[in-house]
Design a protein around this nucleic acid. Sequence first.
DNA 1: AGGCTATAGTTCTAAAATAGAACTGTCAAA
DNA 2: TTTGACAGTTCTATTTTAGAACTATAGCCT
Lengths: 154, 154
Amino acid sequence: MKWDTLDEEPCSLSRTVAVVGDRWTLLILRECFLRVRRFEGFQSSLQITRHLLSERLKKLVRFGILRRVPYSEAPKRYEYILTQKGLDLYPIIMAMVHWGDTHMGDERGRPLLHQHKTCGKEFDPVMVCSECGEPLHAKQVHVHAGPGRKEAVG
Amino acid sequence: MKWDTLDEEPCSLSRTVAVVGDRWTLLILRECFLRVRRFEGFQSSLQITRHLLSERLKKLVRFGILRRVPYSEAPKRYEYILTQKGLDLYPIIMAMVHWGDTHMGDERGRPLLHQHKTCGKEFDPVMVCSECGEPLHAKQVHVHAGPGRKEAVG
DNA sequence: AGGCTATAGTTCTAAAATAGAACTGTCAAA
DNA sequence: TTTGACAGTTCTATTTTAGAACTATAGCCT
């Protein structure tokens, strides 16, 4: 597999996997959503090697998930802020958290609880159909080729 | 990082990442949801090395995502079927597909379209609050420690 | 019987990625 | 002038992955 061109495959999952499809990147993004912004913050909470952290942050900046924003002029220091593109990864992270809560839990209960500020309640994320609003299940979905696939396949 | 115990961390994201947090596993799951079930099927559509495919399938079986079901007695042959635990990964996959559609698209248009059999329409997946039904956004969610975190941290 | 094909793996070596630790450079405060 | 905080970079050893070849069972064709 040519991982370096995975983001150009005629498959939206592949393209997403090209960006967030590794363990460290997903854990870094978790920290971003928990308001971590700085190199040392990521490093100490994740115990990731500084080398890899540096690499992954660069990659996330390159793909437009994070912005590298100066917060000190002398010495020059930067922090990493989620862009809108990055914020839009939230459903992926939440879907993963929810699956972990449901299927990988232990007797200690949930590690984190999520409260929806809008309605005030503790909630679970639910994926629904944009058209009818019903919860989605794999077996109720029919997949067919769109223009991007037809053009790629010929 | 001790990846071998990542599935026991007091963090549901880590636990999920332990299972599906690598590129091949996510691509294999995509194929599962596209009804691929057999070793040769995965191998030829993904161009994954046979060695790694074998490893990843074993891991998915070990974690209860796939079941290895015989479909021929002589010679003994097996196919890999999503369990309920595996089917429940659907929101993760769909969230990734949707993000790719939204942020990684090109001029050729979407590779795949999804039709909701229940309502008959082509749809996008939307993540909503289980309590009030409103679409979720990161900034409207307050995270706090649950019992599993408190017990782990002390 | 002998050879071809299909399927589902296993085994081997080379290349790439990751881990772990040490090092660099800037500046502020003591 | 020394220490410490911060944001990285560089180095070697280990682990993972890629790529190709090999094994094994059995049906089908001649």
